[in-house]
Design a protein around this nucleic acid. Structure first.
Lengths: 213, 213
DNA sequence: TAGATTGTTAATCGATTAACAATC
DNA sequence: TAGATTGTTAATCGATTAACAATC
């Protein structure tokens, strides 16, 4: 079956729809029109209807959208109903915070392994997972077949490890390093989180925006 | 003087230019053409020239761009040369990791205060900064005039604190919470970092992309 | 049925890419 | 000078918004 390619702009909005619908559901609402949702989210009603219709007609003329139904459809589209095994590499401050702070199960993943190269950390347990030596990644991946790797390591370490990880079948990276994985492995999915870039963007706006003047 | 409005797309690319130029400089290079930079970054040469010319003509025909000069121009554009005082609120795993992990000084900010509401944390010192009680924010801000606030707190706490922070003169938020500050305070700059959304996007791609098939 | 709201097509807007004269 | 590469205008492409017939 032919499937339209969905633009990045649309994909990036899906998690936000999912969150908003969850809040509406929690508030006891059962239905909503694209117009009301647009006002709450700061979008246009047109855009919401266009976005949703990339995936199918989830609404009903004259009625709007059933909140619970729509949310579960978006969950399915996002793949949240299949927990993909993931490993996290680099248990520094950031890796530790990610491990403890993120609810992987509600976002389509299951964290199955933690790795670090620092001897003193090996064996320590976080969230019921022991920290393993990076030298055991090969063995671990052949047994557990993780699909995603979360890189909380410096650029150099990412450069050294990425070939191995791709060879071991990693299909997606959640990349906190400054290594441009997407350039080197076009067949692999990379989602970059660059704190520094985000903070510099804020600096730009504080420096240059003259809002409200 | 009239200043063109720069599009978000351009602004979001600036930190990445800055990073790449830093690497080239560190590698001992002194000049680069838009074509060569485009190949290294995975962009088009046209786009690079268009982006840079939003801010001025930093290149030279027949030669290209001086790497050091261009990087320092971008630093200036990003406002990295003025360290804006910032406070961080919420010293959980995430707030702690941000405090320790991020080099604020190289990104246009100076972290001047840490806050949490949890009694047991008050007084503890991280990166030479004592954790203060959120009840002292008013006093602290009137003395130290922070321009930015980093929110590492849950949605509810963000909802409760934001009015106060805006009233105290906070002009920019680095927002890790799920509270949509931008909707409520149109005059204030908000840079959202939504880990969960980013991870769900990765889930979508692992579920739906059939790359290389 | 009448009113409301979707799904979808058409129009607009903005961002990216291509082309080329200017010039180092 | 000749070659290279910018700065900038024009063309293209894609995303957003508007409009409206279909229909619940």
């Amino acid at each position: 079956m032919y499937r339209n390619v969905i633009s990045n702009s649309v994909i990036n909005r899906l998690p936000r729809y999912y969150r908003f619908l969850g809040e509406l559901k929690a508030a006891g609402m059962t239905r909503i029109s694209s117009r009301e949702l647009s006002e709450r989210m700061g979008l246009t009603a047109s855009q919401i209807r266009q976005d949703l219709n990339c995936f199918g007609g989830f609404g009903q003329q004259g009625y709007g959208y059933n909140i619970e139904l729509l949310q579960s459809e978006i969950a399915r589209i996002l793949g949240l109903d299949r927990l993909k095994p993931a490993i996290l590499i680099g248990i520094g401050n950031l890796g530790r915070a990610i491990t403890m702070h993120i609810n992987f199960e509600s976002k389509g993943f299951k964290l199955v392994g933690l790795f670090d190269s620092k001897e003193s950390l090996i064996g320590q347990v976080i969230k019921n997972l022991p920290i393993r030596s990076t030298s055991t990644i090969d063995e671990f991946c052949r047994e557990n077949l993780p699909e995603a790797a979360i890189l909380c390591i410096p650029k150099n370490a990412a450069m050294e490890l990425s070939d191995q990880l791709v060879r071991l079948g990693i299909k997606g990276f959640w990349n906190f390093s400054h290594y441009d994985l997407a350039l080197k492995y076009p067949g692999v999915t990379v989602e970059n989180v660059h704190f520094g870039d985000s903070l510099m963007t804020l600096s730009y706006r504080l420096q240059n925006d003259d809002k409200g003047v």
